[in-house]
Write a protein that binds this DNA or RNA. Sequence first.
DNA 1: GCCGTTTTCGGCCCGACTGTTTTCAGTCG
Length: 579
Amino acid sequence: MVRPNEEVAALLQEYADLLSVTGGDAFKARAYEKAARAVGGYHADVSRLDARQLREIPGVGASIAEKVAEYFRSGHIPALEERRSRIPASVRELIRIPTLGPKKAMALYEDLHIASVDELAEAIRTERLRGLKGFGPKTEENLLHGIGLLRQAGDRILLNTAVQTAEDVLARLSAITGGVRCTYAGSLRRMRETVGDIDILVAAKDSAPFMDAFVSLPYTADVIAHGGTKSSIRTAEGVQVDLRVLPPESWGAGLLYFTGSKAHNIRLRTIAVRQGLKLSEYGLFEAESGKLIVSRSEEEVYARLGLPWIPPTLREDRGEIAAALDGTLPDPVAEAELRGDLHTHTDLTDGLAPLEEMVAAAAERGYAYYAVTDHAPDLYMQRMTDEKALAQRELVRQLDGKHRKLRVLHGTELNIGRTGDVDWPADFLAGFDLCVASVHSYFQQSREAQTRRLIRACENPYVNVIGHPTARHIGKRPPIDVDLDAVFAACGRTGTAMEVNGQPERLDLRDEDIMLARRYGVKFALDSDAHTPIHLPYLRYATGTAQRGWLTADDVINTWPLRRLKSFLRKGHGGAAAA
DNA sequence: GCCGTTTTCGGCCCGACTGTTTTCAGTCG
């Protein structure tokens, strides 16, 4: 179940999209977009607020507050429905294609009656776009590429969407009596970056009450299957959720089996067979007699196979079983080991909350340190200036120590320019406690140019962390083409950390890149890149991704005590990080 | 449509790149 805030944010965003597709006042569309983001990132549940309270959300005025209130009263927003009736919903789908915006989408619809991604692909194939004003051969190529990206992500959903749905289902099923255990399994438990469908497991003697409750969840749109051991539904948002009810005595074997991955399970079964055993979702058995040996817990099953328990995030058949056998399995970094966050924003640039609120939320989470890293001037639309940065630093110094044990660091997120230069000169950079540097432009440069610019950024003595290093957006923008070996080598050499960015659409670096970087002795920063207090928990996804990359606490600079972190941030030049 | 007043209208996230055009519209961060 999505939070009411996100439900409303989606509706406001849809309204903004429809406004921009049908033309008219661009500022109005932008006002709705801004309100959508603000509502999505607001700390309180908007379904419980009246119109007056809604207006306290920045960017929400009388008109939008009334529409939101109306939505929770009647379930309808007449103005939105009126717009929908003018434009097929599938036209809106078109603007999800990178490089295709509202104007081009409308041209396709009005001139060629193209109203969906599939129809567009077909129209390109049959050369129907030839001659349409503003659509040349390069545009066709870009559109095909964009459609490919969109389809690559397929029907898989982002990790946080899956987590929210799964946790809501778990909360509802846990309330039913007779359940011994209840959790999610599958690729979600392994924290893969996207999830195809959600697997929920319940241990109970009697499955019927769980199955019945499951198929009648408030957001069940379709019941795909409704049986005694397995039921499947599709939610209103189109997510498939499977529920399996296991007898309590085979919980461990079932959890192991349904967590996967398939390749990991095959390895385990091979080991079992060599020992004259048979492993299934019901337990570990003697092959000859069929006698059950163990099944109650994952630990017991692994132990009987001669293995320690392997954390789910490592179960991808990427060498974890060999490592477990020879005792070199890493102890993956845990979220509780993180002492702070090193990449966050405020409303001084594109964040949604003021510095004081972000710091208070960080203190609430029990951090030992917290870095504010608003955007630097070269990201023009953020309108950062030297004066604003210095004024913010004053405020940061005042807040430092206000919340008992929380140390507040003043940082910035620099833009890595075309050739690897950054926004500010050395003397100004020296005033920051740390600098994250990220790619926000020139995504299409050659591999050689991208590699050079990133290496140059690493060689800057004031750049401590490379933010979201490949700049990908899952399902929307591919990673930049760069020689990661060369960049990681430069990171290792210069003492520049690589970020594992926890924003669900980024997760950047991704697991495989992390494994590669680690071989170059690179250190990592696990960051939320929060733009509002409710993004701070995204560290959870950064941690999951880091675990999948086999990182231990020692690899991660924000598990370190402040003293050790500051020493790392000095990067050999001795100046920036004063005690 | 929102906001902040220089309170009831005028500005709003600005500039660069791409691909198309032949001087610029559309998209993006």
